[in-house]
Design a binder for these strands. Structure first.
Lengths: 351, 351
DNA sequence: GGAAATTTTCAAAACGTTTTAAATTTGGCA
DNA sequence: TGCCAAATTTAAAACGTTTTGAAAATTTCC
């Protein structure tokens, strides 16, 4: 492998000049730079990463640790995210070192990885409301970026959609259509995103002067069967007068809900309105629903590049506060929402 | 961060001795080693990977590039494999650098990664019968290990199950039970494993003096719906007299087959025998089938540690020929296979 | 007690890059 | 021509480890 020295001796230059020429420093003569570049090409020069890292103190690697979860849907998004992340990181000359974790202690894997390796930072996903990793890494002085947002005090870079806003948007649209009995079929509120959806939902309902029966707020793994079972129970009146609208944490849940509506002999949107949040994964396309699904939309893959860039900017010194993105989801009206049916105006007593 | 020098000055020793003490060289005094170890602990010493790599010429990283595939089942195994691999590699102080690839050129991603990085080797998965990556990496002198086995000439380390043997075992068992009309529901023969299953199946049938109608050998993505559709068609006699036994490339296919058998009002194993190859993934457990599924079993997770070790041994100089493992799958008889039904002895004309 | 053999330690070089501080060359201007 | 400033280049140090060849310390043996 050709080194800086090889190029230097070939041209009668010092390694210092060669290094500067290749790294685009301004103080090197244009002709020299040209010559250096040509010879570098000719010799097939590739900088030795280890040497660069030794002197810069950077490893050019960031870590990501994924918890294995029995639930299938996680895998779907995982591969999707992985694709985008590695591509975005590669553009900034950074590699992704991956580990899979089974330890019950949420920070153990991070400790191990920091010991074993020289990592410039971490990408964190699937935050819980008070995420212990945030405190640990902050205290250890290790840069990281969070995909999502948690409720810790520390200031850290993140990229998240406005999950409270997602619920507010959905509720706002439904109340404008006259709906008053609205159900939330949420993800597991142990996850930060679901906790925020719940908070946003409750706040929006309150400010619309509506009360939410607890039985209309269900949360679990956002699966189709969960949506089906919950919707069926609610429509059967098992939790009081049935809702006229469902706000779903995922399109998968919405699929279950629509099946339940059909099985009860009802129709969407005439009898029941359905709105969901859409991560725009390739598997369940909201537009292929029948009727097409009204959604708040925020493609997951859009998060990859910002995440990578936030992290690397932070590593390079940009303060955390300047790297906090809260993205508003886009509301897309399609066929699954409509005016409240005539029997539906009957309000609940407001709070 | 404490360095070798810090430990050295603290104890009045040279960095050379400290290095040797920590790396377990025999020529260092036991007491010295103890002292060194203690101070290393006290100062929280961690070797600087970049420095180690610079001098050893090793990066301590191996790469793995995964092709994204639309098909879901791949993701399942992917996470499983990833878990095992990172764990096994960590034991040998090695990291996994992961990239996801979309390039139609099968070696482009490898070229890119070799340019960008200093990698000690690669883990290859999902081989095709004549795999272009093998030739490319062999010629480039980059060590690798193959999960699976392809038909290239080059000698390379691999860890694979004996896929021809898998089919032979299944056919052998079924013919012993009197079956003569046996169908193979295979994976996509564009993949090496499926090509081998097919070859093994054909050879075993021939040596049992049986003929296989081409229509009894179907291959595609090993999904449940594929198994269902194919089995239904065959049982309906669409491809000639129905088979009395199915050899399935996966338990997922077998699930589809058993559904098809039931839907035709037949019973397993009285009317139809079913045997599958079982990767022992957590999702579809062969023992939970009804009746429990007879399988050739070779847990995928068992491949992870051997793969990691083969690769690292090869990097350390062990010749490829000594690192070629072909694992025999275990035959487990359960309830889904039985003697051929009375109408089933009618033989086809043998070849 | 001393030479020889053995064990243990050390100083220095090497890996390939970046960066600092100093040296050299170039160009402008009087 | 000579001087000063600017532009360009260089030598050398630094990063933290491993490894080589030699030196020092210790043990063994007669």
């Amino acid at each position: 492998m050709a080194t800086l020295k090889d190029i230097g001796t070939e041209l009668g230059l010092s390694t210092a000049t060669v290094s500067r020429a290749l790294n685009g420093f301004p103080e090197v003569n244009a002709k020299t730079r040209d010559k250096v570049r040509k010879t570098a090409d000719k010799l097939g020069y590739r900088p030795n990463r280890s040497a660069q890292r030794l002197v810069t103190g950077r490893s050019g690697m960031v870590g990501m640790i994924v918890k294995i979860r029995p639930d299938l849907s996680a895998d779907q998004t995982f591969v999707e995210i992985l694709t985008g992340l590695t591509a975005a990181l590669a553009k900034r000359d950074t590699d992704l070192v991956l580990a899979v974790d089974q330890d019950p202690d949420p920070v153990a894997a991070y400790k191990r990885m920091l010991e074993r390796d020289m990592l410039d930072g971490f990408i964190l996903n699937a935050p819980v409301p008070q995420d212990p990793r945030v405190d640990f890494l902050t205290q250890a002085g290790v840069p990281f970026v969070m995909h999502g947002q948690c409720r810790n005090d520390a200031a850290y870079p993140f990229y998240s959609i406005d999950n409270q806003g997602v619920s507010a948007e959905a509720v706002g649209m439904l109340t404008a259509l006259g709906h008053k009995r609205i159900a939330l079929l949420n993800g597991d509120p142990g996850h930060a995103y679901a906790a925020d959806r719940l908070a946003g939902f409750a706040a929006a309902m309150r400010s619309a002067d509506l009360r939410v029966p607890v039985a209309f707020m269900a949360g679990a793994a956002p699966s189709e069967s969960f949506g089906y079972a919950q919707a069926l129970a609610m429509l059967a009146g098992q939790h009081g007068t049935p809702p006229t609208a469902f706000v779903c944490a995922s399109t998968l849940i919405a699929a279950g809900v629509m099946q339940a509506v059909e099985d009860r002999g009802l129709r969407v949107p005439d009898d029941v309105s359905v709105i969901a949040h859409d991560d725009a994964l390739p598997q369940t396309r909201a537009i292929n629903f029948s009727p097409a699904l009204t959604v708040t939309r925020a493609p997951l893959r859009d998060a990859c590049a910002p995440l990578a860039n936030h992290l690397i900017d932070h590593i390079n010194g940009t303060p955390a506060r300047a790297l906090q993105t809260l993205l508003r989801a886009e509301l897309i009206r399609r066929g699954s929402t409509g005016p409240v049916p005539s029997g539906g105006e009957m309000p609940w007593p407001s709070t």
